[in-house]
Design a protein around this nucleic acid. Structure first.
Lengths: 199, 199, 199, 199
DNA sequence: TATGAATGAGATTTCATTCAT
DNA sequence: TATGAATGAAATCTCATTCAT
């Protein structure tokens, strides 16, 4: 996945095809979990054979890696934007929580492949863990700054961040796009509740 | 797994052996995930052959089922005890959060096999989902009652409960027994933070 | 196994390979019986790995099914042809007996996998039993018509048919292609003897 | 299975127990076939554990051997009696056919374990094949003598015998004790038909 | 005699991956 | 680029058999 000087994904045919494959793979990973997702299954969903997958990706692990990398990339993009904004800590934390939930539940339709790490080969694992940690630090930074600024109650910023991330990440276990709760409502209520805990 | 008149697991040799196997299986499930956990691996951890596992359990699914059933059983036991106690809603919710975290992180050493459902055959899935739902309802009940009593702020009890459970369940993804944070400290801080959100 | 408009098996590469596999499987089933026939053994006989078998057939049961289906198909083909012929009942019954024996002992080299049913999964079992019954009815029809026409002695057509089929089917238990008796001679003598019983 | 000087099975406790086991084993072998019959299954049918089977029999093969040996023994007993009788060849052949069918379908309830040889270890195989051949020769002897005496039509006695045995042995594939046809009727009709073929 | 527990070899089956075309 | 066919390693599970008690 090459990013060009515009900060966008290069739109050559190659990359487009990779994105198409990733979308299908992400769906299968979400529905079945990484281990139970078969390459055949992913290929079938695209109407091609497994060979195609191997033409575009080295192996199954790389497929997972790019899913995770893409998800984390989107989240970091949003996060970076929010960090640059002015505003009270509470406001920024709210934006971040809402952005992540919207991203996970709406945009990526709960794919959140970024939640299944154990399987990756070390080389890829290191990269994706690093990216995840960057995102975690980003959120923790907002929390810490809020505490130092006196806007938030004194708490262990690390544990608070992990609690928030847990609440958010867990949503993919129960969220159903056609269920009673819209992603927007969940995002608002979660933000309300999780920020109040810091008041 | 027969429960005798003391409400404890019957300690005949058969049941003891099953518990020994379950402990090993739970460990492997936790470290590797259900799908990547091999029966060989589980057996090796016990110094026996896979045949032994099949002598005591019908198949891999039943092994997972009993792990989940046991974990949920322990949590429900604690939950029932807490529900019977007198005390302010905040106190009871705190007790429940702390109990679940202690149970998951300390007693079961993060096994929490109860978090991987998708794999179970329908018959067992139904039973374990029912048990999980009972626990969820138990926590939601405490939240709802607190709201009705005016002790908690008006929020959607369902979403709040899911947020709390997410924060708690997610701990097994990052908790390390030999890490910087003790289970006790995590439990206290989480309870503080998650209850404050309802104040 | 698709049959094209010529009434023959479509000869694309896929079907050809399936037929090659079936031939090997039929041989092993005959020599060793279905249960003792290993997929390894069948694959070894072809110089391939077991994976190939599973690429072309869903499972072992389907392999058996197609053996039986093919054998019964051949017998029904011959039977249908004979039924359409004019001729005295005795002549037609003779033709049928000889055709089945030739088919079983010569053409299929005693494979007669159609004799081992118990193992098939219900779905396939039903189909193959139906086909077998069609063949049985075909033979019984010739016997009955002969009796009604006064060409055959009055006997229970069902039991006579079962006796004839028993004599024929049993041959695969003792027939040896390199033995003293040629398939042709067996066919003639059996027909003589079994038809005389109806005179 | 020891035979004492009265020509009867010694009725000590040991032998009695062996017979009880054999009866159960024969039933399972018939219903499921030798390979699919599990030692557990046989033991369960008796309300004991597999250990008991191994106390009384060396292994599964010996269990099969004794089933076959017993069946063949019974058939040879009857055969020997019939051979000693005076009477026309047709009468004696009829007696033999009826005796075998009665023995197989009634007395042994279609167990006819003597039909599954392939599995036996060489040592036992040789013995049981020898016994089966003795029975075959017995029947062929009656046929041959009838031909030489001019009572039967000139036919290949070997093939006629194999046809008769096929018709008889095949009955266990379709006979049902609770079906429409009684063993007695089958025996009579088969004898009628099969002897008429020699007239 | 009988049992419960364990073994070990082998069976079928799955699946990521490769490769010639 | 894409496919069909094949591989090989591993996984789950079965089962006859053994053995201490």
């Amino acid at each position: 996945m090459v990013i060009n000087h515009n900060g966008r994904y290069k739109s050559d045919r190659r990359t487009l095809k990779r994105l198409v494959i990733l979308r299908s793979a992400a769906g299968v990973f979400r529905r079945r979990g990484y281990d139970r997702a078969g390459m055949r299954e992913i290929a079938d969903g695209l109407g091609v054979t497994t060979g195609v997958l191997y033409y575009h990706f080295r192996d199954k692990g790389e497929l997972l890696y790019f899913c995770q990398d893409y998800s984390l990339g989107r989240m970091l993009e949003e996060g970076a934007r929010i960090r640059r904004e002015k505003g009270a800590p509470a406001t920024r934390l709210r934006r971040l929580i809402e952005a992540q939930l919207t991203c996970m539940l709406d945009e990526l339709q709960g794919s959140a492949a970024h939640l299944e790490f154990a399987t990756l080969p070390p080389r890829l694992l290191k990269k994706v863990v690093a990216k995840r940690d960057r995102y975690e630090r980003l959120m923790r930074g907002i929390v810490s700054k809020g505490i130092r600024a006196g806007a938030f109650r004194r708490r262990d910023p690390k544990l608070v961040t992990l609690a928030i991330l847990g609440a958010i990440n867990w949503t993919i276990k129960w969220y159903r796009p056609d269920g009673g709760q819209s992603a927007t409502k969940i995002a608002r209520e979660f933000a309300d509740y999780l920020i109040k805990g810091l008041a």
